[in-house]
Simulated assay, not measured.
Amino acid sequence: MATPPPTGPLVTRDGIAARLRLLGVESGETLLVHTALSSLGWVNGGAVAVVQGLLDALGPDGTLVVPAHSSDLSDPALWANPPVPEEWWDRIRATMPPYDPGITPSRGVGVVPETVRTWPGARRSAHPQTSFAAVGARAAEITEGHAPDCRLGERSPLARLEEAGARVLLLGAGYDACTAFHLAEYRVPAPLVRVGRPAPGGWETVTEVSITSDRFEELGRDFERERPVVRGKVGAADALLFPVADAVAYAQGWLAARRPRAREFPHPGD
């Protein structure tokens, strides 16, 4: 059977940069980008062209930031896609390589973040499960100081992005991918959970704030109705642009009104 021709539109590096400028991306700004490469169309150069187009739009003084999470560095007892046999769990914990920001690949965030992670001059934050990678003028400032027991809270790059006046760009991605909303979870009463992961000295368990993106699409729709969000197209993809600070502030109120209070959750270990 013949391979069907690619579906369009044809998307190129210069076209991406041009459309981003029309959307309102400004040279010199800091941008937290969530992407779905396949939504753009037929991209000449794939993820490399997307990163080049983003950097072109941001200019030499701008900064590109992406999630570079490594969710597979986690307890095999919680794996579901796919699960592994229970008799493997102890051996997996004992032999899982610990996080190394230089070599641990990102997982579950798409090919564009992995391309940014390996870009010349890229910086990556230190959290072994929810790191961020950045390229550009403020890359070190944004990624430094990511505490190992603070996935997406006050001591993570999300708080640095908020302080820096950064904006979020959803490029073919939905609000369920908007990591900025997670910062709000740290500012409302939330349960704590025990999180297992590999470490240089062996397996470790730390206490973290519980996070979930289960209602982020609903949250995003309400946010867009009530706060300014710039909408446009880049290739075939819907593109949304808005300030990190606006997203966090709105989500904080929204989650406080709709999430159960922390005392309604069992204490970790109960």
Rank of each mutant, 00 (worst) to 15 (best):
L161W: 07
L58C: 03
T104C: 03
R261F: 15
T35H: 05
A236F: 06
A184E: 14
P9L: 04
Y99D: 00
I92M: 04
A236Q: 13
G102P: 01
R221W: 13
A159Q: 02
E26V: 15
D61L: 03
L240T: 04
R259M: 05
V51F: 05
L31Q: 05
T207L: 05
V50S: 11
R227Y: 07
V234C: 09
G232V: 06
P243H: 08
L192K: 15
R215N: 15
R123H: 03
A237W: 04
A184Y: 14
D56S: 02
P76R: 01
G108M: 02
L161I: 02
F132D: 04
G15T: 12
V248Y: 02
H182V: 10
A190P: 09
T12F: 13
E162P: 11
T63M: 00
T115F: 14
L37F: 09
V116F: 01
G253R: 11
P228G: 07
P85R: 00
T30I: 08
P266M: 06
E264I: 06
G153D: 06
R261E: 15
R19E: 09
A122H: 03
L23I: 10
V206P: 01
E87Q: 14
D214T: 15
M96R: 05
A247G: 07
T118K: 08
G121P: 00
A249C: 09
A94P: 00
P198Q: 00
A36M: 11
T7P: 12
F242Q: 02
G232W: 07
Y250V: 11
L31N: 08
Q129L: 14
E154Q: 00
S125Q: 08
E154R: 03
P98Q: 01
L183W: 03
T212E: 13
H146A: 09
V109K: 06
P85I: 10
P4Q: 10
V66T: 02
G136N: 10
C178L: 15
P148Q: 09
T12C: 15
A180D: 02
L58S: 01
L169R: 12
A2H: 09
P189Y: 15
D61M: 09
A147S: 04
G102M: 11
D90G: 00
E86R: 08
L241K: 03
A257G: 05
F265H: 15
A184P: 12
P5D: 11
F216V: 00
L171S: 01
R91S: 11
A184G: 13
A126N: 04
S106I: 10
D14R: 06
L255G: 11
Q52F: 01
L219A: 06
D61K: 12
A2T: 12
A237D: 09
E218C: 02
W119A: 13
D56N: 04
F223Q: 02
G136S: 08
